[in-house]
Nucleic acid binder design. Structure first.
Lengths: 159, 159
DNA sequence: ATCTAAATGGTTGCACACAATTCAATTGTG
DNA sequence: CACAATTGAATTGTGTGCAACCATTTAGAT
């Protein structure tokens, strides 16, 4: 009966589930030649295909909560694979627009079956999915909120 | 209404929540000078402190579902930090035993408050915790199970 | 005793994550 | 206009994750 027991930690249950999920995508995404984080980038690009210019690196970072240190090399790998192109904005040359190539856009069809396969593997009751999604999103939101500082309890923070 | 929408993916909700959780541990673990995966290793060592020899790298890998390619460098860093010692087994010199040092064992006290702080930050109803834990564990177990092969439906595999 | 297959831990290589820094471009201010 | 502050991306450095490969050791079969 110890509060530090590994199997009692929510963090470890999340960490294990997340790694098992990523591992489960591996063989499905191998057919597309991409990794799981690369797949997440393609999901955003497919979803926002209406933007003719593409989306900026900053926008991808906001959607996926990843910074440029992760996205820059990841995007250059997607570029070498022929899935995306990158070009600097004409209006603001600090911004880089990412757009799927024809091949990258076409890969969407081949990816349609991926969530279905994963859904089968989870063996979860589809009816329980919305609640689980909502719980995870609430948890993420709460954890990202400004945590109370560790050292000083501090005299009444403003909020 | 697209099955590939990012915000509809359980995988992304899990991935985000897991990263937010790890990030939330960062400032708490900084006081111990360790990272989150290093903390997980220490949890196992504290939990199994009754074993005088310590536990093997193989055992750590089974508890955490991590392989030696991850654990070897991680344990070297814990050793440099003075938290653990490593020595080969006398009976089977292929095995390496990991044991907390006095400092590593003492750090348990300083870690006691960590799960409490995290629990506060999650803002989750404590009553809903067991169900969430069980859902995540079931999900992990299902995803780790032998997935049906992608390409060949195959003519009746033996089992 | 010897040969071999399996087990074990290490090493290497690649791909994230993320903090910190750098750099160029832009914006806000007077 | 000058110029400080901000912004967006890239770069660098550290630390995981994980697959593939390697060396050592053990156990089992002959």
């Amino acid at each position: 009966m110890d509060a530090l027991d590994l199997d009692r930690q929510l963090c470890f249950a999340l960490y294990s589930a997340s790694r098992a999920m990523t591992a489960s995508y591996k063989d499905l995404l191998a057919e597309l030649g991409i990794t799981y984080p690369q797949y997440l980038v393609m999901l955003v690009l497919w979803e926002e295909a209406s933007a003719p210019e593409g989306v900026t690196v900053k926008h991808l970072g906001e959607r996926l909560q990843l910074d440029s240190g992760t996205l820059s090399p990841l995007l250059s790998r997607l570029e070498s694979l022929g899935y995306v192109t990158r070009h600097r904005s004409a209006e603001d040359s600090r911004s880089v627009f990412i757009r799927p190539t024809a091949e990258g856009a076409a890969a969407k069809e081949r990816a349609e079956c991926v969530p279905v396969r994963i859904g089968e593997r989870t063996q979860l009751d589809p009816a329980s999915m919305p609640e689980l999604l909502e719980t995870l999103r609430t948890l993420t939101r709460n954890l990202r909120a400004e945590p109370a500082p560790v050292e000083p309890p501090g005299p009444l923070p403003h909020h």
